[in-house]
Design a protein around this nucleic acid. Sequence first.
DNA 1: CGCCAGGTGGGAT
DNA 2: ATCCCACATGGC
Length: 228
Amino acid sequence: MYAFYGPRGWWPVRTKAGIPGFDSRGYHKGDYSLPQSPGEVFEIVTGAILTQNTSWKNVEKTIEELKQKDMLSPHALAGSDPGDIARLIRSSGYYNQKTKKLINTSLYFLKEKFLETSLSPGRTGLLSVWGIGPETADSILLYAFGEPFFVVDAYTKRLLTRLGCISGNESYDEVQKYFTARKKIPEALPLVHYYNEYHALIVEHAKQHCRKNPICPGCPVKRICRYG
DNA sequence: CGCCAGGTGGGAT
DNA sequence: ATCCCACATGGC
């Protein structure tokens, strides 16, 4: 899939959109040096929560709103009126729930000073926050803190099920194990970069070919798939 | 119009 | 543990 789609430039960082080295949406292909500041770390944390069961397109708009109102920080979010936050993040859907999730996460980050110290919250720590489940936790660890946690989402399960790798009713942790237990990892890429690309490639592949109604002509993994 | 999108938590069984 | 549901907007 890497040969077919190329590097994906994840995680997109809106606050860098358009500057040299970044495309208009904040993707940075082949550059694994992000995030580079506490602000960028927190933007990824926020994006990971906002995109829960929601298209990234809707989230981009919200991130932009938050940024323009100087609300893209744990301090600002934790100190704001929930109603104001809900209005700002409206386009990302589930705005009442996500308001609560953002405030909870902000309070946790403030209390533990993760941004100041650059210390990782750790998986258990993130999962203890109301509003952060396994996928959001792993997304934050992998893309915001640069730790090798493989992200499993609905696309991952769909692809692996169609390829015949899993039955489809496995738990999050079981699917994750399918990847982390593998020994065949290209040496050219550090593990964290490999996981970075792998998840992003699965998302791209699921959007282009492995949709709910699959588009098999031209699929890069057609040969090893039951469909097609 | 209907269906889907880079899930999570709560409640019943 | 395992199912079922609420949560909500915007794009196609």
